[in-house]
């Protein structure tokens, strides 16, 4: 008797043409989670290409942040399968998922407020510039070599956002916009394959947002990674996202290109048409 080896194949969905011949970075099937009786996320299906910039939009409380928390196992899914680079991530802990290639930022900024900007990035480099605790305590050669490398890498990463001169500042004392940028740098430091950004432009002024747009695109181009972002600023979303999914009450109500999403009557009814009022409460 011979058994057939069955392999997972990508589900239906759209990805950029340039990524077609490669394994999608993310392939999510029927993902769901309940909080008590509330289906916060229900039957969530999505494919993201290896170098895609994808957007996840929807009204406040739709379940967008919850999706990120499921992808990083801050919450454990009640249902569904998540394939990261073709590998089922079930049962993996948050820190293991980062080692597998998922890095993220947080809607309510979570920096290491008492550490310096440079140390924040160096914590992100934890698994890149490695040496054992013993090597560190005894100050063996590897310690000096890796610390030097970490310093150089941290400066290089900070230069993406022109933040090298802030290296010695305490992270908690930075202005809001700089804190958001530092969170992105820290996530990038872990050398991810997929970067999750939760409302990266929240609290930024229009010129900061415009600059951020450029930088997100540049990060994708330079690092050749996939980026999935949650954002209420439609200029940013429609400007840089290639594929967009719209979430409402925990369910995807539309998927498509920016042009398709902009013209979708269901999306306009549920979200885009109400953007004016929504953005007033966007700081949730």
């Amino acid at each position: 008797m011979t058994k057939t080896n069955m392999v997972p194949v990508p589900s239906l969905g759209i990805i950029p043409e340039r990524d077609v011949n490669r394994m999608p970075i993310l392939d999510i099937h029927h993902l769901g989670i309940d909080f008590g009786g509330l289906h916060a996320v229900e039957d969530f299906n999505l494919v993201i290409g290896r170098t895609e910039i994808a957007g996840l939009i929807g009204p406040n409380g739709a379940g967008k942040t919850t999706v990120f928390n499921l992808l990083t196992n801050v919450y454990t899914p009640s249902r569904g399968v998540i394939l990261l680079d073709g590998v089922d991530i079930r049962g993996k802990k948050t820190w293991q998922l980062n080692e597998m290639g998922i890095a993220r930022t947080f809607q309510n900024i979570r920096l290491f407020n008492k550490l310096t900007v440079e140390d924040n990035v160096k914590v992100g480099l934890h698994n890149i510039c490695r040496y054992s605790t013993l090597e560190g305590v005894l100050r063996l050669p590897r310690y000096w070599k890796m610390e030097k490398e970490a310093h150089e890498k941290a400066m290089e990463l900070l230069s993406i956002f022109d933040m090298q001169h802030m290296a010695n500042y305490v992270a908690g004392s930075l202005p809001y916009g700089a804190q958001r940028r530092l969170e992105i740098v820290r996530a990038l430091a872990t050398n991810p394959k997929l970067l999750l950004l939760d409302e990266p432009a929240a609290g930024m002024n229009p010129s900061e947002t415009a600059e951020l747009m450029q930088n997100i695109r540049k990060i994708r181009d330079d690092f050749q990674i996939a980026i999935m972002l949650i954002e209420h600023d439609m200029n940013l979303v429609m400007g840089i996202c290639e594929g967009i999914a719209v979430l409402n009450y925990g369910k995807i109500i539309a998927k498509g290109t920016p042009d398709q999403i902009k013209a979708d009557p269901v999306v306009i009814e549920a979200y885009l048409g109400r953007q004016g009022e929504e953005s007033l409460h966007a700081e949730g």
């Binding site: 990083t72 801050v74 802990k93 948050t94 820190w95 293991q96 980062n98 080692e99 890095a103 993220r104 947080f106 979570r110 920096l111 290491f112 407020n113 008492k114 550490l115 914590v123 992100g124 934890h126 698994n127 820290r186 996530a187 430091a189 872990t190």
Partner: peptide
């Protein structure tokens, strides 16, 4: 000590 979830999120056990 500053932020547990963020520390785990950058791959630290």
């Amino acid at each position: 000590r500053d932020n547990y979830i963020a520390t785990e999120s950058v791959g630290i056990n």
